[in-house]
């Protein structure tokens, strides 16, 4: 019984997160300006991280946690670097 409930809710939330990634990807592609694309990329990273975590719940293994942590780190570093680049035209001053 509880396995069925978990399976259905994990599947449903995975589909929702995939749709969220689609919406974020739409904003990355459409723009219209560079800051909109960076914002979309940030949302894409967050949705991908949450999707990886739901895979961890689905398989019952904690190995996905490290992958999610790495994605969260990459999201922060890349968005900060891109925002810095938009501001000054250089990443390192």
């Amino acid at each position: 019984m509880s396995a069925t409930i978990l399976l259905w809710s994990v599947t449903l939330s995975q589909w929702m997160l995939v749709a969220a990634m689609g919406c974020a990807a739409f904003r990355v592609v459409r723009g219209p300006r560079a800051q909109d694309r960076v914002l979309g990329l940030d949302a894409l990273y967050v949705a991908a991280m949450l999707l990886i975590l739901t895979f961890g719940i689905r398989t019952g293994s904690t190995i996905y946690f490290e992958a999610a942590l790495v994605i969260a780190l990459l999201a922060f570093v890349s968005t900060a670097a891109l925002a810095k680049f938009l501001m000054r035209g250089e990443v390192i001053e």
């Binding site: 409930i5 978990l6 259905w8 809710s9 994990v10 449903l12 939330s13 995975q14 929702m16 997160l17 749709a19 969220a20 990634m21 919406c23 974020a24 739409f26 904003r27 914002l39 979309g40 949302a43 967050v46 949705a47 949450l50 739901t54 719940i57």
Partner: peptide
């Protein structure tokens, strides 16, 4: 767990819908 999962992913989806 199911309720929390659906709440979290639903809010993430709503956020990206707002982004669009």
């Amino acid at each position: 767990v199911s309720l929390l999962l659906l709440l979290g992913s639903g809010l993430t989806l709503l956020g990206t819908i707002g982004l669009v």
